[in-house]
């Protein structure tokens, strides 16, 4: 069906000669511009209205004391209150603890990607299996781990078989964080190993061949060629992991610990939720969200800068 139209295509194109042709062309192109704009507009309006505007609105809310109905301008009061709030300090510290997951995830992903790169039998199927946790909801993964590490869960049952007393994993802050970190690693390493695999595949095979000719063994090639050559992807994976720890732990915390015991496992995003729906001042939650946003923005900029510099040397 497309064949005849392509054949006819070149003919009318140069026909737009002379003043009348040019005028017709500009009318046509204005028409094209309008059609294009009309096509983009619905999506743009939705995104500006319900994503960009809310950020500005959050900024405004953060300067007020409000219950959602009446807004009283308080300037920077919400921000100064955050600075002296011990809960906020503790919660920020918790987020830093969760950063332990970053090297763990990257290390596991790196190992798995190098194994996959050897293209042993069935590597395509392995790829799908490793991706599996990524299609599951954080709520499902969180509950699976909460179940497994619960008092009657698989882990304690297994410990029981070994004659060990059941452990209350979720009444101790450090243990609870460890379980969440484990869930993070379990759910994250597969996808990231696929990202790293894509990086590995793009390395020029000539480099490997040269190294092999020089007598470099498998391990040597791994450390001196493979890893340095995927620095860029490693950097990208590092960034998404750090951002994830600061913005996306809500689901895990919500289903696994509800932030407890005390505030021991509360993360910044969970605290925003708590402040928003269980306190009389929404402004405080909004201020926290804005601080998080700025922090993430700065972090992204710094990391981009660092990894770009590395790339150039």
């Amino acid at each position: 069906m497309t064949a005849p139209t392509t054949r006819r295509a070149p003919a009318p194109a140069p026909a737009a000669a002379g003043a009348r042709g040019a005028a017709r062309l500009s009318v046509a192109s204005r028409r094209q511009r309008l059609i294009g704009l009309a096509a983009v507009l619905p999506a743009l309006v939705m995104v500006v209205g319900f994503m960009a505007f809310p950020v500005a609105y959050a900024l405004y809310i953060s300067f007020t004391k409000t219950n959602g109905l009446t807004f009283a301008w308080v300037g920077l009061a919400n921000y100064t209150a955050l600075l002296s709030d011990p809960v906020v300090h503790q919660v920020f510290g918790n987020n830093l603890k969760f950063l332990v997951s970053v090297p763990l995830v990257i290390f596991s992903a790196l190992i798995v990607s190098v194994l996959l790169f050897e293209r042993v039998r069935g590597w395509r199927l392995f790829r799908v299996v490793f991706f599996l946790p990524n299609v599951l909801s954080v709520a499902v993964i969180g509950l699976m781990f909460r179940n497994a590490f619960g008092y009657y869960g698989g882990v304690n049952q297994a410990l029981g078989l070994l004659g060990v007393e059941p452990v209350q994993f979720f009444t101790d802050g450090t243990l609870a964080i460890s379980v969440i970190v484990l869930a993070l690693v379990w759910s994250g390493f597969g996808y990231q190993s696929l990202l790293l695999l894509a990086g590995l595949t793009s390395i020029d095979p000539a480099v490997f061949e040269a190294a092999a000719l020089d007598g470099a063994g498998w391990w040597k090639r791994l450390w001196h060629i493979t890893i340095p050559n995927i620095r860029r992807v490693l950097g990208f994976v590092f960034i998404i992991n750090v951002l994830y720890t600061f913005t996306s732990l809500f689901g895990f915390v919500y289903v696994m610990t509800a932030g407890g015991p005390g505030f021991d496992t509360t993360t910044i995003d969970y605290l925003v939720y708590l402040r928003a729906f269980s306190s009389t001042n929404l402004g405080s939650g909004a201020a926290l969200a804005v601080v998080l946003f700025l922090f993430i923005g700065v972090l992204t900029l710094v990391q981009n800068r660092v990894f770009r510099l590395q790339e150039e040397d």
Binding site: V47, F50, M51, A52, F53, P54, V55, Y57, A58, I61, G68, L243, F246, T247, S248, F250, I268, D269, V272, Y273, A276, L282, G285, A286, A289, V290, L292, F293, I296, G297, T300
Partner: peptide, 16 residues
Amino acid sequence: VMLIPGPVLIIPIYLM
């Protein structure tokens, strides 16, 4: 806007 972290949106969106 893809870079906007989810927690930033929950309060303003709820109010809107």
